[in-house]
Nucleic acid binder design. Structure first.
Length: 418
RNA sequence: GUGGGAUUAGUUCAGCUGGUUAGAGCGCUAGUUUGUGGCACUAGAAAUCAUGGGUUCGAAUCCCAUAUCCCACCCCA
């Protein structure tokens, strides 16, 4: 039997892991610099939470969830995103009593049963963050700047920020009615999807790929022009805050977001190298979500970033990720006695936090040298009877071939100074 | 759920219109005589040619189905 990784899943191999470590480090550092602390939530939750939180009419919930009954008869779902779980945790752990805003970031895998394509997997990784308790546009702008700073720190260029406001339930309902009135005479001439959208979610008709080019669609009233006064003020506040910091953006009235919980601010960071799945990071405000999940009315906002997409973009842009070689020195042994001494030396060095390697294959001296050369380990030392007798070794710098003599007890210090 | 392209050693690929023991580069292991590497040379291991059927005297090669991979629709990170 030949086993293979399941459709839509991928191994992250040792040869590539340094890129992930780097991205994770930068993300957590940036989040910490804004005062966010990490939260780790479970991989699965009760199905109901996602149906409630993400919205039971969304594609994610209706056709993309990994749902099963466990042996106790509970309906379990592998998280399709992180927000619902964080919200659950916020409520369950009484975080409302913590100083506001409560800010958390996370690094998780998510699961969606979808057809695979470029930048889209069934198990994928997300960096995300959530902030609870603040209504003002100040936090909206700050969330966006976390992502912006992160992209700069990673070294990505030309990631475009697009923002929009989809209003509060009040202005959105009013707008939906307006849209329906507008489209009603034209529905019959539109695509099947749009005919379905007309009843369920007319907002979506605006960014339809098929009918999008039609004059009727292009001239349709835009939500951004029909916000209530409060929502309008909020959006203006966000823009002026972004301007103040110098973050560039474009207003894209077509950003809708497919998760039901969003209100007011929605945004995306988009690239052109990830195929048609260009959204590297997407997020927005969700003022009704905590209450909807059983908590006290609490405003919230957050984003999620697709790590695979992020790394793909980094690769496409030729961003360099440094790989720090943790193994500093290779010891080649000339005899059994030498190799026993080497084992003791290595043990000591590792206690001191210095990485080292020696032969594990029973190789000849020559073959050990070959391995040392190919492995890229920066320093080399040969230990044989002479060294055992003298208590001194010669340490060779592989890059330039220079050698220095060092007492065996002082190898650690020698390497630390380098 | 719907389309298009692909699937041959660990990996990247050859294998022409069906014809004996399926090849190469890279990688891997060992050696090129015993105290200094990456190179070079030599040898070796490694493939039920994605899986299951079918056509044929004969299939990696032709046909069908399934799976997986890549890309796209939809949707999202």
């Amino acid at each position: 039997m030949k086993y293979s990784a399941q459709k839509g899943t991928k191994d992250i191999l040792p040869a590539d892991i340094f890129r992930w470590h780097k991205a994770e480090k930068v993300f957590s550092d940036v989040c910490h610099s804004f005062g966010y602390e990490e939260i780790r939530i479970p991989t699965f939750e009760q199905t109901e939470l996602f149906a409630r939180g993400v919205g039971d009419t969304t594609d994610v919930v209706t056709k993309e969830m990994y749902t099963f009954n466990d042996k106790g008869g509970r309906s379990i779902t592998l998280r399709p995103e992180g927000t619902a779980g964080v919200v659950r945790s916020y409520i369950e752990n009484g975080m409302a009593s913590l100083p506001s805003p409560v800010r958390m970031y996370y690094n998780i895998t998510s699961f969606r049963y979808e057809n695979v394509q470029k930048g889209r997997m069934r198990e994928f990784h997300q960096f995300g963050l959530e902030s609870f308790g603040s209504t003002g546009p100040v936090i909206d702008a700050e969330i966006i700047s976390v992502a912006d700073v992160f992209f700069k720190k990673i070294g990505l260029k030309n990631i475009k920020l697009r923002i929009n406001s989809i209003g509060c339930p009040a202005c959105r309902n009013k707008y939906n009615e307006m849209l329906k009135d507008y489209f009603r005479p034209h529905v019959s001439s539109m695509c099947e999807d749009c005919q379905a959208r007309f009843e369920k979610n007319p907002l979506r008709m605006i960014d339809c790929k098929i009918d999008g080019g039609k004059e009727v669609v292009q001239n349709a009233p835009r939500l951004i022009d029909h916000l209530c006064d409060d929502c309008k003020a909020h959006f203006e506040g966000l823009k002026s805050r972004l301007d103040a910091v110098g973050i560039k953006y474009t207003i894209d009235p077509n950003i809708v977001r497919g998760l039901d919980y969003y209100t007011r601010t929605v945004f995306e960071f988009v690239s052109e190298n990830v195929g048609t799945q260009g959204t590297i990071c997407g997020g927005g405000r969700y003022d009704g979500l905590v209450e909807n999940c059983g908590g006290a009315p609490t405003p919230g906002i957050g984003f999620a970033m697709g790590v695979e997409r992020l790394l793909m973009e980094a690769e496409a842009q030729g961003v360099l990720f440094e790989k720090n070689d943790s193994v500093r020195i290779y010891f080649a042994g000339m005899s059994e006695a030498a190799s026993q001494k080497i084992a003791a030396i290595c043990y000591d060095l590792r206690l001191k936090g210095i990485g080292c390697e020696t032969d594990l294959m029973g190789r000849s001296f020559k073959a050990q040298m070959k391995y040392a050369g190919k492995s890229g380990i920066p320093y080399l030392s040969v230990i044989g009877d002479d060294e055992l007798k003298s208590g001194e070794v010669r340490i060779k710098c592989m890059a330039d071939g220079s050698e220095e003599t060092v007492k065996i007890d002082a190898i650690g210090e020698y390497l630390t100074d380098k």
